[in-house]
Amino acid sequence: MALVKFTYALKRFFPKLTDTEAGGKTLKAVLDEIEASYPGVTRYVLDDQGRLRQHVNIFIDGVMIKDRNTLSDPFQENSEIYIMQALSGG
């Protein structure tokens, strides 16, 4: 199972959000599992067309994903998937 971790910033909207194991084989499948546990959270991470939002990043084992449009970056069964915000704005 991959372990999904979240930026603390998302906990403002989803107070129960915590490290979550997911069995999906693709990033999209993992996010679907997370959505089932925390309804609405993927709308914060992805836009209307399912692309990663401009100021959101996903790291797999410390490496930023490359495919922000279809989320096809591969990962291992024991990978750590970290959903974080870009540092921007004022």
Binding site: A9, L10, F13, G40, R43, Y44, V45, D47, R53, H55, V56, Q85, A86, S88, G89
Partner: peptide, 20 residues
């Protein structure tokens, strides 16, 4: 939201509680 996109909230009690 700068990071998380547009969100819509409504309140039926003058802002005491909100529902997304």
């Amino acid at each position: 939201h700068g990071h998380w996109g547009v969100k819509l909230q409504r309140s039926k009690d003058r802002g005491q509680s909100w529902e997304e």
